[in-house]
Design a protein around this nucleic acid. Structure first.
Length: 934
RNA sequence: GCGCGCGUGGCGGAACGGCAGACGCGCCAGACUUAGGAUCUGGUCCCGAAAGGGGUGGAGGUUCAAAUCCUCUCGCGCGCACCA
């Protein structure tokens, strides 16, 4: 490919403009109060007063983890989409914030460190350098002055600071908000400081708990539920086991309801919202307390009771046994001596079972009878208590009442162990009531017999509540977030451990002045022999002079990405995570105070009022892969809400609009992977076709959100298009001279490029109506398509324009000028080069609007003029009985009757009307005529 | 199993319920050329000489009119997966 002649000298053009943008800081965004230099193109368009900034538009990419493998063609897909929109909105007059950074803490760099002893920072820096070079070579309009790195102490100082905000807060259930921990009321019984501390520490948003966690021996760390797939670690695919450990947790469950409710306020795809809803997993039901039968109670000990959660309290009369999860605390006290050996064996097996084994065994229910009986509160019937691993310790109360007639799992279990099945819900029609799990009518159920399920639920719950036997409850699948990792390459906790007078350990927050807490220097990054995290190796770091010991866990990789979008707003601020004025401006809370400038609000003919950009609360557009549909996006929303409650941010949601780009598959239609050998390296594509072609192709492949295969021949297609654009503007002869000069002396490429002349067909001439129509149709299509993220059809519209314009004898400079403004967001390098040539010859073409700024990136987006698009005569199809039979040409303003008359008169239509009566004529003015004839 | 999404030429994909296949790839023919894997021109859903007929995974339905809306069904993809 590199042998053949280039379509146009992108290899000279692209570095040239990237340098210009860098030197000029063209895409720098300005904070309120910042001094804007008069010479900057932003100032030339909007003025220098940063107290009166135009409306903001925050366009954000999910920042990458800079891996050693370098950029993948999937990364630039989203980045190109956001860059096009950033450039488009800049042209439309918005003040665009479009930043990039690095999510650089993480396991690969640490594992490399464990192997080589090299500090992870070194690998991280090298990877960032590669990523940055690759991303820059694509010509994205990022404001690089806001670049972030989550591993930079100046950044993670504030990650630690936010952790402290959570540590120093509790969730007030009365207000449903986080509040400072000083406002926590204490129960009257707590008198000593120790008691109050224990109470307080148990209510913080960041708390410590002994939790059964997934421990991964190979990685030497615990993992969150979400990081474990089928009993293997998501990273590395190593086996994991269940193990109780002391861990930091974040109380995300307190926000379950708000995380769910507020989904309704944001503009995300329904599929994505659905995934979050499922993850949160709200279900309404009741907790019901079953007394343990006196015979099963140990003499002398208080009578225990088993509380279960059920979404079907109406089936209480059908409960024929109960099941505790193997880990349930009542298993031990309830188990009879006769059953104890069997129960113990079963519990041991359940503890060592991996998730994979549990899943595989899902079809065959297992369990053991404890020997104990509980009493059904509605009918005093004694029912046996079993343990089984199909009941999860972590959901609800860890215990269930089993209603085999109306629950599939209970039915399987009952059949496996020959337990009774009692129908209490009558299925509608002739359906079998056994195994019927949907709503029906209660039967054999005492006071609720005869009631439809919803009413039965209400009545029985009220009955239970009156007697103190149960209460209405809402349960969530969402679990608290396991927030500590036994790793080196992560943020240390700003926490120390101290002993009280009785020698008991407790934790305390370090003061803000101690931030950032830097990790110690190590030579060995492995966990210690005793299973302690690697930080424990640095004893002089761990042990402080006052006898306190530092926390040796680190935060998970998710931490840094939970708030990076806020740091971009004020990335170098040493005294706050973000200055409030900047936060209000960029997150849109202050939007109402800024009137929309006339140029945009005016909504000229080509900008219908509904299209006038409205400032949105939060990030205007966030683009990234679906792999973050739940975790990152839920965690970030959670942190944002905490910061909102504590008054640090002004919007309840961080990301107003979110779009997932679709996966790019290999040329074979398979997922790209090294083992398949179908990985496309962006560097190779750039070398052969240039950045503009690469960008254009990624967008031309199909709708952004769709999964689509790569096709290198497709790249050639858009590359040829860019070649046609080039030839539309330049003179052939001077291009040949350029090639010859390059062969002779490639070192003077920029000079030769400057000598390429504009085609003589480009003239200072008035555009013909046909040319204007071509232009304005293009303006309209590109504008509407970009507004709806339809990049592929926008590109197609540009192609249509170029195909027509190539045929023009005379190419009016004013028309080409507008075309370049449309091209700029998509193929910015080529557009800039041609713009510089065009404006050098035609500084202000007749009929063009005045140019307030010389930089193409700040040229106002053109509006289309509908009057130029209007046709005098239109051609529309004529159908007979819904089938296309002919076409008629009629004046655009014709009446329905005229349309109909013309249709009946149409020669091609006549034969199909012969011998028939037109019963009805459907006339869609300007669209079509359909004659219904019998 | 449950939930969500998607099925249109040889391929990627277009198409406010109103001309199916825009645009691009590929392919065919031609022009310019020492040459063409550059460029330009024309053609390209299927059957048919034409008139015409058929056609958006399949089967029904709503409608004057369905790729588009509804029901069922098949296939593919993604997510969740004993959540009581």
């Amino acid at each position: 490919m590199s042998q053949t002649r280039r379509q146009y000298p992108f290899h000279v053009i692209e570095p040239k403009w990237q340098e210009v943008w860098e030197r000029q800081q063209t895409f720098r965004a300005w904070n309120p109060g910042e001094i804007i230099p008069a010479g900057h193109p932003f100032a030339q368009r909007h003025g220098c007063d940063s107290g009166a900034l135009p409306p903001k538009c925050y366009i954000l990419d999910m920042f990458p983890y800079p891996s050693g493998a370098g950029l993948h063609v999937g990364h630039p897909e989203g980045y190109t989409a956001t860059d096009i929109l950033a450039r488009y909105h800049r042209a439309r007059g918005s003040h665009v914030l479009h930043p990039m950074g690095w999510d650089a803490f993480g396991l690969p760099a640490e594992q490399f460190a464990v192997k080589t002893g090299q500090h992870p920072r070194k690998a991280t820096e090298a990877n960032i350098a590669t990523f940055k070079r690759q991303i820059r070579s694509l010509g994205f309009s990022y404001d690089w002055t806001r670049e972030l790195d989550t591993t930079d102490p100046a950044y993670f100082k504030w990650t630690q600071w936010i952790f402290l905000q959570m540590y120093q807060a509790w969730f007030n259930p009365d207000t449903s908000r986080a509040e400072p921990i000083d406002t926590l009321p204490y129960p009257s019984g707590l008198t000593t400081d120790e008691e109050r501390r224990a109470y307080r520490d148990g209510r913080r948003l960041a708390y410590v708990a002994e939790m059964p966690v997934w421990w991964c021996e190979q990685l030497g760390t615990v993992l969150a539920n979400e990081e474990v797939l089928d009993g293997k670690s998501e990273v590395g695919d190593f086996p994991v086991i269940r193990k109780p450990m002391r861990q930091w947790m974040l109380r995300i469950t307190a926000y379950a309801e708000r995380l769910l409710q507020d989904l309704d306020t944001i503009d995300w795809s329904p599929a994505l919202k659905e995934m979050q809803r499922h993850w949160i997993g709200r279900s309404e039901g009741a907790e019901v307390t079953f007394a343990v039968a006196p015979a099963s109670t140990r003499p002398g000990s208080p009578a225990p009771a088993i509380t279960v959660f059920t979404t079907r309290p109406d089936t209480l009369f059908g409960a024929t046994y109960m099941v505790l999860s193997p880990e349930h605390p009542l298993v031990d006290p309830l188990t009879t001596d006769a059953q104890r050996p069997a129960v113990e064996t079963y519990r041991r097996q359940a503890a060592t079972k991996s998730d994979l084994e549990r899943t595989e065994l899902a079809k065959d229910k297992t369990g053991v009878f404890t020997g104990a009986y509980a009493v059904n509160p509605v009918n005093q019937e004694p029912i046996p208590v079993w343990i089984a691993d199909y009941v999860l310790a972590s959901y609800g109360t860890g215990a269930i009442m089993a209603v085999p007639a109306h629950d599939t799992r209970d039915l399987e279990f009952a059949r496996a162990f020959n337990l009774p099945v009692r129908v209490v819900v009558q299925a509608p029609g002739s359906r079998d009531s056994i195994g019927y799990v949907d709503d029906g009518v209660s039967v054999n159920s005492g006071l609720i017999t005869g009631l439809p399920t919803p009413e039965a639920k209400r009545k029985i719950t009220a009955w239970l509540e009156e007697r103190g036997l149960g209460r209405r409850t809402v349960n969530y699948k969402l679990r608290d977030w396991l927030f500590s990792r036994q790793r080196y390459w992560g943020e240390p906790f700003p926490i120390v451990w101290k002993r009280d007078a009785r020698g008991r350990l407790h934790h305390e927050a370090l003061p803000e002045s101690a931030l950032p807490v830097l990790p110690p220097h190590l030579t060995d990054y492995k966990p210690t022999a005793s299973g302690q995290p690697p930080l424990a190796r640095a004893q002089d770091w761990v042990n402080l002079p006052d006898g306190a010991m530092r926390e040796t866990n680190t935060m998970p990789q998710w931490a840094g990405s939970c708030w990076y979008y806020l740091r971009y707003l004020d990335p170098r601020n040493p005294s706050a995570f973000c200055e409030p004025a900047a936060e209000r401006y960029w997150m849109g809370a202050a939007a109402a105070a800024h009137p929309v400038p006339g140029e945009r609000a005016g909504a000229g003919p080509g900008f219908p009022a509904s299209e006038a950009p409205a400032t949105r609360p939060g990030v205007d557009l966030y683009v990234g892969g679906t792999e973050h549909a739940v975790l990152h996006l839920l965690y970030a929303r959670f942190w944002h809400k905490v910061l909102y409650d504590l008054g640090h941010v002004s919007t309840p949601e961080p990301f107003h609009r979110l779009v997932n780009q679709g996966l790019i598959l290999g040329e074979d239609g398979q997922k790209m992977s090294k083992s398949r050998g179908n990985v496309i390296n962006p560097d190779d594509v750039l070398k052969d076709y240039g950045a503009d072609a690469f960008r254009l192709y990624e967008m031309f492949m199909g709708p952004l959100e769709m999964v689509k295969p790569w096709n290198t021949q497709g790249v050639e297609g858009v590359y040829r298009f860019l070649g046609r654009v080039w030839r539309l503007f330049v003179e052939d002869q001077s291009e040949t001279e350029f090639d010859q000069a390059m062969t002779a002396d490639a070192s003077r490429a920029r000079t030769w490029l400057d000598q390429v002349r504009l085609s003589p067909a480009v003239q200072d001439a008035a555009a013909t109506p046909a040319q204007l129509k071509t232009l304005h149709a293009c303006i309209r299509k590109v504008t509407e398509d970009l507004d709806h993220l339809r990049f592929n059809t926008a590109i197609s519209a540009l192609m249509v324009f170029v195909n027509e314009a190539l045929a023009w004898e005379c190419k009016p400079a004013a028309v080409l000028r507008e075309f370049l403004i449309l091209l700029q967001p998509l193929a910015p390098h080529l557009a800039e080069e041609l713009w510089s040539k065009l404006t050098a010859t035609f500084p202000t073409p007749p009929g063009a609007r005045a140019t307030p700024a010389p930089a193409l990136s700040y040229q106002p987006w053109p509006a289309w003029d509908p009057s130029l698009l209007a046709e005098d005569m239109i051609e529309i199809p004529v159908q007979v009985n819904g089938k296309l039979r002919g076409r008629i040409r009629v004046p655009a303003g014709a009446t329905s009757a005229e349309f109909e008359a013309a249709a009946r008169a149409c020669e091609k239509v006549q034969p199909f009307l012969a011998g028939k009566t037109v019963r009805k004529a459907i006339v869609v003015p300007g669209k079509l005529v359909n004659l219904v004839a019998v």
